[in-house]
């Protein structure tokens, strides 16, 4: 056991993170609420709530319902719109010293392009995360995320509109997650984040109708963690861009499992609802685990449980041309793990 430093810094698709833990979009607003509990600069990044071109009121209540080891939400993308996010939220986040990734959601290709364009040169924005799970109003409301061609189109138009690093957030509600990942990577995604929520429903038996006014909602929380882990593992085998893993991560051991599956970073969402400092606890837990296990660099830990890993281990592969958004760099990861400790423990309920 040594007290030496563990390097936690990773680079995810051109976004430099001081550690591999970020907030999951939609679970931490624009950071203000959790800043009452911890300094936002403690995290790798704040990934803000899905931001749309126009302000959105959101769905009528009830908007959430608790389910076994999880919850369904149907918030309806309530947000103040991109212009107010740029004028009010991002400057405030910059003052907090946070690394900022702006999650954007559009209802047409034009909207994604316009969002990317408006955020392109905003001071303090390190990257964009594309929420492609929205209905495409130009195609009878089919979600962009359900087909490789429509997902690819979103990435392409955003890519043309900005030099910022693009993370593309995939929905698990698809037949072949690997095919979706390949499609968005080919279209120019710098990183892939997954999973978004699973479609679910709860029915009020006595009232004889769905609990949520819109019927279905998005399932999150520990209930979806095994699904998320399997999908991260799969995607990390088929793409050469970094992966940000999320879905039910509540503890450092959960996060470590995602890193082992091949994620370069993880996002913490629903866990913050019962533990407001969950994300910071996870940063500290990862650091102490790696130290105990003799790792000096988290990047050497990424993918160790995934022999067929193709995704890079917390670094961005060299790309042609300059990037306005972030600069690749930092020391190369060690070629092999710094420790020989076998990592045979199962993630468990603790």
């Amino acid at each position: 056991m040594t007290a030496r430093e563990v390097s936690l810094a990773v680079e995810v698709g051109g976004v430099r993170l001081k550690n591999p833990v970020v907030t999951a979009s939609g679970c931490a607003g624009y950071g203000r609420e959790y800043a009452r509990f911890y300094p936002l600069a403690r995290l790798g990044a704040v990934v803000v709530k899905s931001t749309t071109l126009e302000p959105r009121l959101g769905n009528p209540p009830p908007r959430v319902v608790e389910t076994p080891a999880g919850m369904l939400n149907s918030i309806g993308l309530q947000n103040p719109g991109v212009d107010r996010v740029i004028s009010e939220e991002i400057p405030w986040l910059r003052e907090q010293g946070a690394t900022i990734v702006v999650n954007v959601a559009g209802f047409s290709l034009r909207e994604y392009a316009e969002l990317a364009r408006r955020l392109d040169r905003v001071e303090g924005v390190s990257g964009l995360e594309l929420n492609i799970s929205c209905p495409n109003v130009e195609r009878q409301g089919t979600s962009f995320c359900t087909r490789p061609d429509t997902a690819r189109d979103v990435v392409r138009v955003a890519r043309e509109a900005t030099g910022l690093p693009l993370w593309v957030k995939l929905s698990p509600n698809v037949a072949d997650i690997g095919e979706m990942a390949q499609a968005v990577a080919e279209a120019g995604a710098d990183a892939i984040s997954l999973i978004n929520t699973l479609v679910g429903m709860a029915i009020d038996v006595d009232a004889r109708r769905p609990v949520l006014p819109r019927g279905t909602g998005g399932l999150s929380g520990p209930a979806i963690r095994p699904v998320a882990l399997a999908m991260v593992y799969r995607v990390a085998q088929v793409v050469e861009v970094p992966v940000v893993g999320m879905g039910g991560i509540a503890t450092a051991r959960d996060a470590l499992a995602f890193l082992l599956a091949g994620a370069s970073a993880v996002a913490v969402g629903t866990a913050s609802f019962s533990n407001p400092v969950a994300a910071v606890d996870i940063v500290e837990g990862i650091e102490s685990y790696l130290r105990e296990q003799g790792f000096s660099d988290v990047r050497a830990f990424v993918g160790l449980a995934n022999p067929d890993l193709r995704a890079p281990r917390g670094v961005t592969p060299a790309r042609a041309g300059p990037r306005p958004g972030g600069s690749p760099g930092g020391p190369a990861p060690p070629a092999c793990p710094a420790a020989e400790t076998p990592l045979g423990q199962e993630e468990g309920p603790g």
Partner: peptide, 27 residues
Amino acid sequence: EALMACGVGACMACVRPVRRDGEAAGY
């Protein structure tokens, strides 16, 4: 009262429509 998730303002679950000066003023 409302169903809440985070309880701290982050998740937007526990909303209630309001009016100000007689007009709808969001949630």
